[in-house]
């Protein structure tokens, strides 16, 4: 498939998926559109870096970092808690399917597949969590820096 069509499909589908999940978890009306946009941003960061052969952990970390930063920005614009944007945005990334596949493989008796999937779940979950926390930390630093700057200018 040509690359432009692939990009177009990825953008529209990640938007639809994030908004679809936002409908299920009852995201406030005014935040729906931004939740979708957040999902697109996160997924595209993941998709591009995954296609650039960064492995599995780094793309997830980068995507979660981008998502975290954008969610914090959107949260300031829309005056909503950060979670409102972060959770629908993370939906295309989180390793729900490997978790289910691991249990299924275990119950069917394919132990090797189960272990592979479990490790994948651990790696991806860890990467996403670290990415989100890095974003939180960066924004905290940013806040402190700005406050220090304002103090400095006031003096």
């Amino acid at each position: 498939m040509i690359i432009w069509l692939q990009i177009l499909i990825n953008i529209t589908f990640s938007y639809i998926a994030s908004v679809g999940f936002a409908l299920i978890i009852n995201v406030p009306h005014r935040a729906l559109n931004f939740a979708g946009i957040n999902g697109v941003l996160g997924w595209m960061v993941y998709w591009v870096s995954f296609r650039a052969h960064f492995g599995r952990a780094i793309p997830n970390l980068l995507a979660a970092l981008a998502l975290g930063i954008f969610s914090l920005l959107f949260a300031r614009i829309k005056k909503c808690p950060v979670t409102v944007f972060n959770i629908p945005g993370l939906v295309p990334l989180v390793p729900g399917v490997p978790a289910y596949l691991a249990v299924r493989a275990l119950l069917i008796g394919e132990t090797a597949t189960a272990v592979t999937m479990l490790i994948r779940v651990a790696v991806v979950t860890g990467a996403i969590a670290v990415g989100t926390l890095l974003a939180t930390m960066l924004m905290e630093r940013d806040y402190h820096l700005r406050r220090a700057w304002r103090h400095y200018k006031a003096r």
């Binding site: 993370l90 729900g96 399917v97 289910y100 969590a129 670290v130 926390l133």
Partner: peptide, 22 residues
């Protein structure tokens, strides 16, 4: 895999880890 997307605990896992790290 598609159908189960609404029920899979991916977000629950991520939130759990975030709580742990905090």
């Amino acid at each position: 895999i598609g159908g189960l997307m609404t029920l899979v605990p991916g977000l629950a896992l991520t939130n759990a880890l975030r709580d742990l790290f905090m």
